[in-house]
Amino acid sequence: MKLSYVSTSSIREALRYSMARMQADLVDGQKEVQSGKVADTGLALGVRTGKTVSLSRDIDRLKAIIDSNTLVASRLTTTQDSLSQISDAASTFLTAMTSASSGNATPETTRQAAVSMLEALTGIVNSSFNGEHIFAGVNTDVVPLADYFASGSPAKAAFDAAFEAKFGFAQSDAAAADITPEEMTAFMEGAASDLFLGDGWSTVWSEATDQGITTRIALNETAETSVSANNEGIRKLVMAATMVANLFEAPLNDQALGTIAKKATLLVGEAMGDIAQTQAKTGFVEQRITQASERITMQSDIFKDFLHDLEGVDPYEASTRVNALISQIETSYALTARIQQLSLTRLLS
Score class of each variant (00 low, 15 high):
Ile86Cys: 06
Ser87Ile: 01
Ser87Asp: 04
Ser87Asn: 08
Asp88Gln: 09
Asp88Pro: 01
Asp88Asn: 14
Ala90Asp: 00
Ala90Lys: 05
Ser91Arg: 00
Thr92Asn: 08
Thr92His: 04
Thr92Lys: 15
Leu94Lys: 01
Leu94Ala: 06
Ala96Val: 10
Ala100Phe: 02
Ser101Phe: 12
Ser102Asn: 13
Ser102Gly: 13
Gly103Glu: 10
Asn104His: 08
Ala105Ile: 04
Ala105His: 09
Ala105Gln: 09
Ala105Asp: 09
Thr106Ile: 04
Pro107Ala: 09
Pro107Phe: 10
Glu108Lys: 07
Thr109Leu: 07
Thr109Pro: 00
Thr110Asn: 08
Thr110His: 05
Thr110Gly: 11
Arg111Trp: 01
Gln112Val: 11
Gln112Asn: 14
Ala113Ile: 09
Val115Phe: 10
Ser116Arg: 12
Ser116His: 04
Ser116Ile: 10
Met117Ser: 06
Leu118Asn: 04
Glu119Thr: 04
Glu119Val: 05
Thr122Leu: 03
Thr122Trp: 00
Gly123Tyr: 06
Ile124Glu: 05
Val125Ile: 05
Val125Met: 00
Asn126Tyr: 00
Ser127Arg: 05
Ser127Pro: 01
Ser128Arg: 02
Phe129Gln: 01
Asn130Lys: 05
Asn130Cys: 10
Gly131Gln: 07
Glu132Lys: 15
His133Asp: 05
His133Thr: 07
Ile134Lys: 11
Ile134Tyr: 11
Ile134Ser: 12
Gly137Ile: 05
Val138Trp: 12
Thr140Cys: 13
Asp141Ile: 03
Val142Asp: 04
Pro144Met: 01
Pro144Arg: 02
Leu145Lys: 02
Ala146Thr: 09
Asp147Glu: 09
Asp147Gln: 02
Asp147Leu: 03
Tyr148Asn: 01
Phe149Glu: 04
Phe149Ile: 01
Ala150Ile: 00
Gly152Leu: 13
Ser153Phe: 10
Ser153Ile: 05
Pro154Tyr: 05
Ala155Asn: 04
Ala157Ser: 15
Ala157Thr: 15
Ala158Val: 13
Ala158Pro: 10
Asp160Ile: 12
Asp160Val: 13
Ala161Thr: 12
Ala161Tyr: 10
Ala161Ser: 14
Phe163Lys: 00
Phe163Glu: 06
Ala165Tyr: 04
Ala165Lys: 12
Lys166Thr: 15
Phe167Arg: 01
Gly168Leu: 11
Ala170Asp: 14
Ala170Arg: 12
Gln171Pro: 09
Gln171Lys: 14
Ser172Arg: 08
Ser172Leu: 15
Ser172Gln: 13
Ser172Phe: 12
Asp173Arg: 03
Asp173Ile: 02
Ala175Leu: 12
Ala176Trp: 12
Ala176Ile: 04
Ala176Cys: 09
Ala176Lys: 11
Ile179His: 06
Ile179Tyr: 03
Glu183Thr: 08
Met184Gln: 02
Met184Gly: 03
Met184Cys: 04
Thr185Ala: 14
Met188Leu: 14
Met188Thr: 06
Glu189Ile: 08
Ala191Pro: 10
Ala191Trp: 11
Ala192Ile: 11
Ala192Trp: 14
Ala192Arg: 15
Ala192Asp: 13
Ser193Lys: 15
